[in-house]
């Protein structure tokens, strides 16, 4: 279990998950995550040459719905769950970027 299988950059992973870790947490997660990876590595030793790849753990397909319009929530309910509100209609968040760019993805 203590065997270090890979060099995991915990700081990088924590950064991706927006987690702020202190030094003792970093070393704890280093051990934990390496243990998970070592465990997963064992799976790569299984001979899968006769098995076709799968895209999902469950072997069901086509769980889909018809294009029917339903009812949305009331705006007051929506805004009740928001940390802060702007003009009683928008959800207020801190400034994300200073430019005039609109979307992220």
């Amino acid at each position: 279990m203590d065997e270090k299988s890979q060099d995991v950059d915990i700081k990088h992973i924590a950064g991706l998950a927006r987690l702020n870790l202190n030094d003792s947490e970093i070393s704890r997660y280093e051990t934990d995550i390496n243990a998970v990876l070592t465990h997963a590595e064992q799976l790569s030793k299984v001979d899968l040459s006769d098995v076709s790849p799968t895209a999902h753990a469950v072997s069901i397909t086509n769980v889909i719905r018809n294009d029917d319009e339903g009812v949305s929530m009331s705006r007051s309910n929506v805004l009740d769950n928001a940390p802060d509100v702007l003009d009683d209609e928008l959800i207020k968040v801190p400034v994300v970027i200073s430019s005039n760019s609109e979307d992220s993805a």
């Binding site: 339903g70 949305s72 929530m73 705006r75 929506v78 805004l79």
Partner: peptide
């Protein structure tokens, strides 16, 4: 389409802000 991709909220442009939403498209 009439409804959104993964929930039945209307897919419509120009409505009042935050009136065409539900727990699914709000990511609850």
């Amino acid at each position: 389409t009439k409804s959104k991709m993964f929930c039945s909220c209307p897919n419509r442009y120009g409505s009042d802000p935050n009136t065409l939403v539900c727990p699914i498209c709000m990511g609850y």
